[in-house]
């Protein structure tokens, strides 16, 4: 399944500012199908901002973004909705619906489709829970009753609910202990191989990078300064990269 050279995400010359604060200035990034790309960068370097542009939550000041070969903002409401259902997102804070229990959180996007029967929804929810290594009993817990790591896993299960082709994860391993964060990365890699999806993952964490074995896009000086494999990234001469891998 990993032969196609089809590009899934194509970011061209994106510029982004908040008031006087220029956050991104000409970001270019191309991600092909079935790739795993880690986006690294210092705190406040604009990783979340770039991700919000890619999923269309905010519009860049300049530049273009193509998803699955089409401009992100092309088409009417239904076409845009269909495009949005092709990717799943895990937000930095989880962003679970606090009024719904775990099962209903995962079932929510499935029910929104209005074609899946309730019995099938329940089975798929049970399957998604097992995918992220949670038990069916956890379905009745409320988000406020979960630990930090469980929140991440439930959010991942919800992001996987619609069988996305592209998965965007904002710091999925932050707040987990090293062992768990490596286990989480292995989980993501296993899912990626099983489902043949493209994964974009924001991280600060060198352990996560080592476990991930994909391409590393480095965001520094308001642009992507390199997007190559981990070994090659280590060789790039740039103050940020040298500091980052020093530890």
């Amino acid at each position: 399944m990993r032969s196609t050279a089809e590009t899934v995400v194509d970011v061209r010359g994106v510029v982004s500012r908040f008031g006087d604060n220029l956050v991104l200035d000409g970001v270019d990034l191309t991600i092909g199908a079935d790739e795993i790309v880690a986006l690294v960068g210092g705190s406040g370097s604009g990783k979340t901002t770039l991700m919000r542009h890619i999923i269309g939550l905010s519009r860049p000041v300049a530049g273009e973004i193509f998803l699955f070969g089409e401009p992100l903002w092309a088409g009417d409401y239904l076409e845009q909705q269909a495009r949005r259902r092709r990717f799943g997102v895990l937000f930095q804070q989880g962003a679970l619906f606090s009024a719904l229990n775990v099962g209903d959180n995962i079932a929510f996007p499935l029910r929104e489709l209005k074609v899946v029967r309730e019995k099938e929804v329940r089975e798929l929810v049970a399957y998604k829970l097992s995918m992220v290594e949670l038990e069916p009993e956890h379905a009745l817990l409320m988000p406020a009753e979960l630990s930090g790591g469980m929140i991440k896993r439930v959010a991942l299960a919800r992001a996987l609910a619609l069988e996305p082709e592209l998965l965007l994860l904002d710091e999925p391993t932050s707040g987990l202990d090293p062992e768990r964060s490596v286990a989480f990365v292995h989980l993501i890699r296993r899912l990626q191989r099983q489902l043949g999806i493209t994964v974009v993952l924001v991280t600060h964490d060198v352990a996560t990078l080592n476990a991930l074995a994909g391409r590393v896009a480095v965001l520094a000086d308001r642009r992507v300064i390199s997007a190559v494999s981990l070994e090659e990234t280590r060789k790039v001469r740039h103050p940020f990269i040298e500091r980052f891998f020093q530890y």
């Binding site: 329940r122 089975e123 929810v125 097992s130």
Partner: peptide, 12 residues
């Protein structure tokens, strides 16, 4: 097989 291993699981 991966799916069928889990569809038997019942949500409470």
């Amino acid at each position: 097989a991966a799916v069928t291993a889990h569809v038997g699981l019942r949500l409470p």
